[in-house]
């Protein structure tokens, strides 16, 4: 082998980059996030259901929130009619956060896990919660 030192250095740098996820996770335990739904308001609901189905909300909630923002702020429409014909008032703080008052235990659980930082709270006031 020619230029052994330089070749070896190059290979070490390559392996350090390529295997980063593997050695970075040694000894770390990460559990799948379980967003909590046990807020006082949700517990008092007769039918424990969000504005749309759970599957829809899981996949499309960001899209829905974006559409809500556009319709409330840009078009002034404050009423949302869901797929079952039920009406809801379009408001993040008064509708969504009324039930899901536990941002730290609900929103942040998955968002932190997937390293998502939504910019909801650059305009809206973040709910004040007791530190758990």
């Amino acid at each position: 082998m020619y230029n052994g030192g330089k070749i070896l250095l190059g290979i070490i740098v390559f392996v350090l980059f390529a295997a980063f996820p593997f050695y970075n996770n040694i000894g770390k335990v990460s559990a799948k996030p379980e967003p909590k739904l046990d807020t006082p308001v949700i517990q008092q609901l007769a039918e424990k259901k969000c504005v749309e189905s759970k599957e829809f909300m899981k996949a499309e909630h960001m899209q829905l929130l974006n559409d809500w923002r556009d319709s409330a702020i840009r078009e002034g429409k404050r009423i949302y009619v869901n797929s079952e014909g039920k009406e809801f008032r379009i408001s993040l703080q008064n509708t969504c956060m009324n039930c899901h008052s536990n941002k730290k235990e609900f929103c942040d659980k998955c968002h932190n896990y997937a390293a998502v930082k939504p910019y909801c709270w650059t305009c809206h006031i973040e709910p004040k919660e007791k530190k758990s």
Partner: peptide
Amino acid sequence: LKTDIVGVKELAMGLVSF
């Protein structure tokens, strides 16, 4: 198509932590 990102991360983290 909106893939379940939490599930994807679970799979990926499972892989890298053997």
